[in-house]
Computed example of a mutant assay.
Amino acid sequence: MSEQQNLSAQDRVHLRRCVDLAREALDDGDEPFGSLLVDARGAVRFEDRNRVQGGDATRHPEFEIARWAAEHLSPAERRESTVYTSGEHCAMCSAAHAWVGLDRIVYATSTEQLTSWHREWGLPAGPVAPLAINAIAPGVPVAGPDPELADEVRGLHARLHGVEQG
């Protein structure tokens, strides 16, 4: 279950960076998603943004984090790490996160919010079921969304789809 009340000041600092990475992705012609991997000491170990514009729809930053963590961190380090992301993991990224053995996920906006915006804007459903992280990876602790960032993230997605904000 998501727990927005459990977002710390440090969580919000990392989420802010994720939204900045999402904006960077959008400015570069990609979908607006950005993510960080933070170790137990609070150090950012890896960060990335969406890179799907080249045609590989699996180039999500959360999936890249899972790949990087599998190659560079021990299982113990992965169990102590937190992934921060501008948007809740999709099913593919949730599965990768769980298979690699990463711990907590903190997200700025939820899958429910994103699908609601898409419905409001008359956009078709995507090719993958819009499931919450814990529907795919029930043992992964999650926190989010962050209401302080919702309007900004919504604006990035509106810009992606050419939707007027009113």
Rank of each mutant, 00 (worst) to 15 (best):
M1W: 04
M1S: 07
S2F: 14
S2M: 10
E3R: 15
Q5W: 02
N6L: 09
L7H: 00
S8V: 06
S8F: 02
S8P: 04
A9W: 12
D11W: 07
V13C: 12
V13G: 05
L15N: 01
R16W: 00
R17H: 08
C18S: 13
V19T: 05
L21S: 00
L21E: 00
L21T: 01
R23P: 01
D27P: 09
D28C: 00
G29R: 02
D30N: 15
E31S: 15
E31H: 11
P32H: 12
P32D: 03
G34N: 08
L37D: 13
V38Y: 15
R41A: 15
R41E: 15
A43G: 06
V44S: 05
R45T: 02
R45S: 03
D48W: 10
R49H: 15
N50Q: 13
V52Q: 12
Q53D: 14
Q53W: 00
G54T: 07
G54M: 00
D56C: 01
D56Q: 04
R59M: 11
R59Q: 06
P61Y: 06
E62V: 10
E62T: 11
E62C: 11
E62N: 09
I65C: 06
I65D: 02
A66T: 00
R67K: 07
W68S: 06
A69W: 03
A70W: 02
A70E: 08
E71Y: 01
H72F: 08
L73V: 04
S74I: 01
S74L: 07
P75I: 02
P75G: 03
A76E: 14
V83T: 04
T85N: 11
S86R: 07
S86N: 12
C90Y: 09
A91Y: 02
A91N: 08
A91S: 14
C93K: 10
S94I: 07
A95R: 13
A95W: 09
H97Q: 06
H97K: 03
W99R: 15
W99V: 05
V100T: 14
V100I: 10
G101V: 01
G101K: 07
G101E: 02
D103H: 15
I105S: 03
V106E: 01
A108T: 04
A108H: 03
T109K: 07
S110V: 05
S110Q: 05
L114H: 10
S116A: 10
S116F: 04
W117Y: 13
W117T: 10
W117F: 13
W117L: 14
H118R: 11
H118D: 08
R119Y: 05
E120R: 08
G122C: 06
P124H: 00
P124F: 01
A125H: 11
A125N: 14
P127K: 14
P127Y: 00
P127D: 12
P127T: 08
V128N: 14
A132S: 08
I133W: 11
N134S: 11
N134T: 08
A135M: 12
I136V: 12
P138D: 13
P138H: 09
P138C: 04
G139H: 11
V140W: 12
V140I: 07
V142R: 04
A143E: 08
P145G: 15
P145E: 10
P145N: 06
D146C: 06
D146P: 07
P147H: 09
E148D: 15
E148W: 03
D151P: 05
E152H: 12
E152T: 15
V153P: 02
V153K: 06
R159F: 10
R159C: 01
R159Y: 08
H161F: 15
H161D: 09
Q165V: 13
